[in-house]
Simulated scan of single mutants.
Amino acid sequence: MIDGLVGGRLYGEAQIRTGQNGKRFVTCKVRATTNDGDTIFVNVIAFDDEVQTALLALSDADSVALSGALTPKVWTDKNGLIKPAVDMVAHKVLVGYRGES
């Protein structure tokens, strides 16, 4: 397991799901940019109630930073190219909320 911090933008909307044990969790994707300008997708799952609430409050393309356990992966796109990806079990979230006056 790798502990890490990932910053990027939410890709789509966070989704509520229910496990076989009846417990709720939230999944989402975060699009992060690497140092060389490439994009990497982070597949996020959150079991913590506070993290779930924060992710569900976000909209597509909102900025987010997450810390948690990372697992590197690869996937194949429709052109047959192998691309990197990361799975994350999110433990903490940092989001920028708009203030209302």
Rank of each mutant, 00 (worst) to 15 (best):
M1I: 13
L5D: 11
G7R: 02
G8I: 05
R9T: 06
R9P: 02
R9Y: 14
L10V: 03
Y11Q: 14
Y11S: 15
G12N: 02
E13V: 07
E13K: 08
E13T: 10
Q15D: 11
Q15R: 07
R17D: 00
G19V: 05
Q20V: 02
N21G: 03
N21D: 14
G22I: 00
G22W: 05
G22Y: 05
K23M: 09
R24N: 00
R24I: 01
R24P: 00
R24W: 03
F25H: 06
F25Q: 09
T27K: 01
T27F: 03
C28I: 00
K29L: 14
K29N: 13
V30T: 04
R31W: 03
R31A: 12
A32E: 10
A32G: 09
A32N: 06
T33C: 07
N35K: 15
N35I: 07
D36F: 08
D38Q: 15
D38Y: 07
T39F: 15
T39Y: 14
I40F: 01
I40Q: 01
V42D: 04
V42C: 02
V42F: 03
V42W: 01
N43E: 06
N43Q: 03
V44P: 02
V44H: 04
A46G: 04
F47Q: 07
D48F: 11
D48N: 15
E50W: 05
V51M: 07
V51K: 04
Q52S: 05
Q52E: 08
Q52K: 11
T53K: 10
A54L: 06
A54Y: 05
A54G: 09
L56Q: 02
A57H: 05
A57R: 01
L58R: 04
L58D: 05
S59R: 09
D62R: 02
S63T: 00
A65D: 05
A65V: 11
G68V: 09
A69R: 07
A69Q: 09
A69L: 10
T71V: 14
T71W: 12
T71I: 13
P72V: 11
P72R: 07
W75K: 01
T76K: 06
D77E: 12
D77C: 08
D77K: 07
D77F: 14
G80V: 15
I82R: 12
K83R: 15
K83D: 05
K83I: 03
K83L: 10
P84Y: 04
P84Q: 11
A85Q: 13
D87M: 13
M88T: 11
M88E: 04
V89I: 13
H91Y: 13
K92Y: 07
V93M: 02
V93R: 00
L94K: 14
V95I: 08
V95F: 11
G96S: 12
G96C: 10
G96P: 02
G96N: 08
Y97P: 02
Y97A: 08
Y97L: 00
G99H: 12
E100N: 13
E100C: 11
